[in-house]
Design a protein around this nucleic acid. Structure first.
Lengths: 340, 340
DNA sequence: CTGTTAGCGCATTCAA
DNA sequence: TTGAATGCGCTAACAG
């Protein structure tokens, strides 16, 4: 039988309320008493029953997710995952709100962040654009006692408590490694397509990719990255133009969104067949894998990211820090055969 | 505010105890009353608070894991993950016991299964060998009301409630696809190494691999699978002999364990450098990826598998069925760059 | 600074 | 066949 607060109280010779105060780090207890309770705790090996605690506390965690609006399939999947989490909110004791903002619009993010009432929201998860004004807004929320985590794209230099996403440098390296092996020693050029270099995840992928090609596959030369703002039409014309202009392009790495445009540009230039790697499993990329248009897709499990964000935000709101192993998001590699 | 049993009781005009009886499907309630309660439930949209229920019930779930003993690194990692779960058992309300049995020994598995007291264990997870006697023992447990899930390797034809593992046919296909692309059209032979074809996961991988090579990479010819009982020394000599005997082997797929032997055999035959794919991230395979001896490792997250097994077994013990999306185990592909 | 007491939402005796 | 009362482990007023 594991020990309860009653056992601690008896062992320490104090009342339940005092035990509770110590356990929750509330003020109004003498040092002496605190220590008595703490020794009792460690002597009996007490661990609090979180479920009972939450039940008694009737605590709910008001959480806000700030994500880009627009047609980006990945972001829509992300939104669906957040919606799914809202469905579980009664059992997880959360109250989740989604705020969508125009993509790449730091000002809009800042406005949403600034409008938040720090009294009535315990945590915020946002897909950040990497700009100074967002950094300031995030740090201000932190100062107000709101827990903030970045989602998908990080905000380096800010004081966000956690980043729920993948190591994007490693993701870029992985893409580079795959492209290099798929080309198998054949020399040529690789077109790199990005959404926006104002996004730290895109920056990171580009640099990881370039590093691997330079050191391990020097026979491959990088063209780009060309910026498309994650717009499918822009991707289509950029890729089309590059392909038409340079017959030595034997591979393409799209490290941003707009896969639909990429697929169209390649389809229009059959039977030419570059090695292609893109990011995120969506309706389009899934189809492209099946059709043999894409060779591999690098993915982050956004369901996992959302669940992780919720766990992390709740934990920090309770003054605990989460177990890192559980919260690390994998860099998935999908071929057509191991698609989930 | 979400409705509670009190609200249901008031709405239906009955007492708490009656509501509870209906909710838990216990006998001793008139049809009339049952219906009154059920309409109240659906009208108010009541969902039971699982935490409060578990608190009141003081329920713990006695679980048994049956896994192979021996030096197989993957199994030792699996064991460590189970041990980690035991550490969480106070908060997860489980009581976990590990039973190790000699590898590939159906008789030993059956003995452990038969010795279980169905009254005092609510669920069993086992790494199954695919034989009739194990199937019978499992089905008998099921008949006795014990929930049984297979772990890592399935037991087709049995009535186990769940398989906690990957789709091994798809895993084999993935390996085939990667090997095919890494060879990039170059004709040659591929050596396939397996542990035991009495393991359904090994069988499945071999067939998936062969199917892809046949249909998509006909220029590659399969040698094997050679059986090694997952013994590293056996793998070393088998691979060494094959490599020495046939200079046309340009790739190796080890779909079983014993990676240490594989690494040694290849290292002894430098600078010959076949494309190599193996399974499971362990100390050895991790090092081999870093050294460039392995090109890719296909992995199943056994931490996820263990956690999933626990969730699933608990759910079935409560008469619920688990959410399939959360319980699907991914087929991970790791290069040296995206290793976790 | 410390203790008493009344719940949180649910399950479960024990009576009726 | 039904209901009243008690308690799970913990928190939070409210007193003292």
């Amino acid at each position: 039988m594991r020990p309860t607060v009653h056992d601690i109280a008896a062992e320490a010779g104090v009342s339940l309320a005092t035990v509770d105060r110590v356990l929750n780090g509330r003020p109004g207890v003498r040092r002496q008493t605190v220590e008595k309770v703490e020794t009792a705790v460690s002597r009996l090996g007490y661990v609090r029953d979180v479920m009972a605690a939450n039940l008694a506390r009737r605590r709910i965690y008001p959480l806000v997710f700030v994500i880009p609006a627009g047609p980006n399939s990945f972001m829509r999947v992300l939104e669906a995952e957040i919606a799914a989490a809202m469905g579980r909110s009664s059992v997880e004791r959360t109250s989740i709100r989604i705020e969508t903002v125009p993509p790449f619009d730091s000002g809009a993010i800042v406005r949403v962040l600034d409008a938040l009432d720090p009294q009535s929201v315990s945590g915020v998860a946002l897909v950040a654009t990497d700009t100074e004004e967002v950094r300031i807004a995030v740090d201000r929320l932190i100062d107000q006692g709101v827990q903030v985590a970045t989602l998908v794209s990080d905000l380096p230099g800010s004081r966000r408590v956690h980043f729920c996403g993948i190591d994007n440098i490693a993701a870029g390296r992985t893409a580079g490694n795959l492209i290099g092996r798929f080309c198998a020693g054949r020399p040529g050029k690789v077109l790199v397509v990005a959404g926006s270099l104002k996004l730290s995840d895109h920056m990171d992928r580009a640099s990881g990719f370039a590093a691997v090609l330079k050191s391990e596959f020097p026979e491959l030369e990088i063209i780009g990255p060309v910026e498309t703002n994650d717009d499918a039409d822009a991707v289509r014309s950029a890729v089309g133009a590059a392909l038409d202009a340079d017959p030595h392009i034997i591979a393409i790495y799209n490290l941003g969104a707009g896969n639909r445009g990429l697929i169209e540009a390649i389809a229009a230039r059959k039977p030419r067949r570059p090695a292609v790697i893109a990011h995120e499993v969506t309706r389009h990329s899934r189809q492209a894998l099946a059709d043999g248009v894409f060779d591999a897709v690098i993915n982050q499990d956004c369901g996992h990211e959302v669940r992780s964000a919720i766990r992390v935000l709740k934990a920090y709101a309770d003054g605990l820090n989460p177990l890192s192993a559980q919260e690390r998001i994998r860099i998935d590699v999908f071929l057509k055969d191991n698609l989930p």
